[in-house]
Write a protein that binds this DNA or RNA. Structure first.
Length: 580
RNA sequence: GCCCCUAUAGCUCAACGGAUAGAGCAGCGCUCUUCUAAGGCGUUGAUCCGGGUUCGAUUCCUGGUAGGGGCGCCA
């Protein structure tokens, strides 16, 4: 059995997972700082890719942090740490030079050998490059969209949907075990209302029947008409109407349509959880009793109220209406009771519209009060701000109730799925979005997604040309493996080449960041960065040229770039084309 | 009245508390005998207003201003 050289351990962890450059530097810094006599237990410092190449490749603020505590000059502290680092053999294999600069940053420049080794890592990891294991297979549930089956998915649902899908991809890549879930509100008031809306739209012939809602509360969208037509409502007589059955069927049909659309938009779900099933399984009762046991229920004015502890600054909310039916709150508590108590997820992430924020805070408090949420069992939620629809600079009120809205499917049909996904993912959930369909149509051709896809297609085209153009080596794989041997990769010394390598190797770090902070919008930013740096390389360095060795090395770099771009796009759910 | 979110270039958005605030689009000027010009190069242009914390603030705290969302029997 071949023994690994000590040097190899620098680059890989015991499990075979690739350690990130950042993790390695952090460890080295901690060790050196401890040797210099600092207590590192509660020290928060950063190691980040340098903001400007003139500073090197990575920068740390450690000296400034320690200087503030020890009341020494940052430069003195930095020199101290650097001395320690430079006696570390492994460190010296990774880092070519380390310097203190500016207000006290420690700047690191990576060694050519290390960069060459990283390209090999990318080439051998392929589709799995960027995969890390910070999740340790913990069970994480991501719930998203969860729109009522009373109408087609809206633009707002698209924001949450694409975000949830991409976040799930990233968390999966980070080593968590993910359950993607859609909570279907197929019980309750809004379903009844849907049924009556369909009946109203179908104009039942003759006789008297009373619709128990004022007209302005009914769903007026065109899809309601369509349902009425499909269900042949007009052929019913008033006495034959079965509002409950109609409600049930209508919502089922809408749900089927939602499933069709999410599939079409490549938004994946593992579980479609029905609200009705909560009743069937007795979960409502179970949750209710748990609340009761903790004395969180109060009877007042004929209804039953959720009453959290004082000082909680939360308004009381109705759990069970005076007519004996639960509001949406109780089933939602029961649903989360199921998540935490029965299915025992280690972490639950709910992605909801900003209009639900008060509700989410309430839920959070409830589960804290029930003792089901703690530091080891987390309940996170991401609020996605609403999308406003604009037309000619004027806001168009979007709502299923008023019937004026652009559906998610219409948008995607108009601008294309990749452009739509990129467009939505670029924006942070907290940002407020004004959406102009006319503008979207005009600008879809200029969407940065094509820039990224173009870079990927260029990589593919270069590799295709290399494999077809003589030299006897038919397979790209062979070319690449050849280049990875014999230190050919050390020939990649042009600034545009090294910059590209350095950009490629931060993918695992990015995955780690996104998985812990849910900042999915960094994916499109990163993809654009890689494409930009690749373009500079493409401009400055002819890949296929006279120098056979250099050609091989550059082909390896192109292939590595293609892998990183493809992986990043796959995390976003965006197609990586071989040609455009 | 209370709660959540937002304010950065003409427009759409970036920037883990860090060094000279970055992209794309729009504008202007260049650039295809060379692996895809859906590209590249150059250029104009910005942190809402006031305090505070910090070695350092677009970022954190606080007070304003403006906008979006929400606040006991819809979900």
């Amino acid at each position: 059995m071949a023994t690994k050289s000590p040097k190899d351990k620098i680059f890989t962890k015991g499990s075979g997972e690739v350690a990130t450059t950042k993790q390695f530097l952090i460890k080295s810094i901690i060790a050196a700082s401890q040797n210099a006599g600092f207590h590192m237990e509660k020290i928060n410092f950063t190691v980040e890719p340098a903001s400007n190449i003139q500073y090197g490749d990575y920068a740390s603020n450690i000296a400034m942090v320690l200087a503030a505590i020890g009341k020494k000059s940052p430069h003195a502290v930095a020199e101290n740490i650097i001395t320690g680092l430079e006696t570390n053999k492994r460190f010296n294999a990774v880092v070519k030079s380390v310097k203190v600069a500016g207000p006290g940053f420690i700047n690191f420049s990576l060694s050519p050998e290390y960069l060459a080794k990283q390209i090999k890592n990318i080439l051998s990891a392929k589709n799995n490059y960027g995969r890390i294991d910070i999740g340790h297979k913990q069970n994480v549930q991501v719930e998203f969209i969860s729109a009522n089956p009373t109408g087609p998915p809206t633009l707002g649902n698209g924001r949450g949907g694409f975000l949830g899908d991409a976040l799930s991809n990233v968390l999966d890549f980070a080593g968590y075990k993910i359950t993607r879930e859609y909570y279907v509100n197929d019980a309750g008031e809004q379903i009844k209302k849907l049924g009556w809306s369909v009946i109203a739209a179908g104009k039942v012939s003759g006789g008297d029947y009373k619709i128990p809602y004022p007209p302005e509360e009914l769903y007026p969208g065109g899809y309601v008409q369509e349902l009425a037509y499909k269900l042949q409502i007009s052929k019913f007589k008033p006495e034959e109407l079965n509002p409950e059955a109609i409600s049930r069927t209508a919502s089922k049909m809408i749900l089927e349509d939602i499933k069709r659309i999410t599939k079409k938009l490549k938004i994946r779900f593992d579980v479609w959880f029905s609200e009705k099933s909560l009743h069937r399984q007795g979960l409502i009762k179970e949750a209710y009793e748990a609340l009761q046991k903790k004395h969180l229920i109060e009877k007042k004015e004929g209804a039953q109220w959720l009453r959290l502890k004082e000082n909680d600054n939360i308004n009381e909310r109705v759990l069970i209406k005076s007519n004996g039916e639960p509001t949406y709150l109780l089933p939602d508590i029961a649903y989360h009771w199921d998540k935490f108590k029965r299915r025992r997820f280690d972490k639950v992430i709910d992605i909801v519209g900003a209009d639900h924020h008060a509700h989410m805070f309430t839920l959070n408090r409830v589960f804290a009060s029930l003792g089901l949420v703690s530091s080891s069992r987390k309940f996170d939620f991401i609020l996605v701000q609403l999308v406003r629809l604009m037309e000619n600079g004027q806001e168009v009120r979007m709502s299923k109730r008023t019937g004026t809205f652009i559906t998610l499917e219409e948008l995607v049909d108009t601008v294309g799925l990749d452009a739509a996904r990129f467009f939505f993912l670029m924006r942070e959930p907290n940002s407020h979005m004004d959406f102009d369909m006319t503008l979207a149509r005009e600008q879809s051709d200029k969407n940065p997604v094509y820039y990224v896809q173009y870079a990927h297609a260029r990589c593919a085209s270069i590799l295709a040309k290399a494999s077809s153009a003589g030299s006897g080596q038919a397979k790209q794989e062979g070319i690449v493996e050849g280049s990875a041997r014999n230190n050919l990769l050390l020939k990649l010394a042009h600034p545009s080449e090294t910059q590209l390598i350095k950009k490629l190797i931060i993918l695992p770090e990015l995955v780690e960041d996104i998985a812990s902070k849910y900042e999915v919008s960094r994916l499109p930013v990163y993809a654009t960065d890689v494409a930009t740096v690749f373009s500079a390389f493409y401009r400055d360095c002819q890949v296929i040229g006279e120098d056979k060795d250099l050609t091989l090395a550059r082909l390896a770099l192109v292939r590595a770039t293609k892998i990183v771009l493809a992986n990043t796009m796959r995390l976003m759910g965006i197609h990586a084309p071989e040609r455009m």
